[in-house]
């Protein structure tokens, strides 16, 4: 079973969300990067972009596939990992660390409570991912 840190929340589309004060840091899970294989391209929104929970905010591409990135929470993008477009392999190497994608300032607290806990996400993976 893939690494699923206990202190993070998760989406059904395999993004993780980390509470950092009044902000939320976002990336994709270890399981997601394993399934994708070598990540060769990452497209992220600009700082200031409004993102909507459960809607795509960017794109990650492996050699074989294109996948949308889904926002765990609605709000404004306040930080973007500018390293990723030049070093997309970081997503494979360190999905929960240097492979983070964006930081969002949520517009409400409601979305956060909808996210999966680590235990719920683990259950999801046990059921086959979807």
């Amino acid at each position: 079973m893939s690494n699923i840190p206990k202190d993070l929340k998760y989406t059904r589309e395999h993004e993780w969300a980390k509470a950092e004060g009044d902000r939320v840091r976002v990336g994709i899970t270890a399981y997601a990067q394993e399934q994708l294989g070598d990540v060769v391209f990452v497209e992220l929104p600009k700082v200031g972009t409004k993102v909507t929970a459960k809607k795509p905010f960017g794109v990650v591409e492996s050699v074989k596939a294109v996948s949308d990135l889904f926002a765990p929470v609605s709000g404004e993008v306040v930080e973007v990992n500018g390293e990723l477009p030049n070093k997309p392999e970081t997503v494979n190497q360190d999905p929960y660390g240097k492979g983070w994608m964006i930081v969002v300032k949520p517009s409400s607290k409601a979305d956060w409570d909808q996210l999966l806990t680590a235990q719920q996400y683990e259950e999801l993976l046990k059921q086959g991912g979807h």
Partner: peptide, 20 residues
């Protein structure tokens, strides 16, 4: 290996990783 359907066959798409 990760096995996938390819042209009617069940084939390995990757072992260690495509780039490696």
């Amino acid at each position: 290996a990760r096995m996938v359907p390819f042209g009617g066959w069940e084939m390995p798409v990757q072992y260690a990783g495509i780039v490696e």
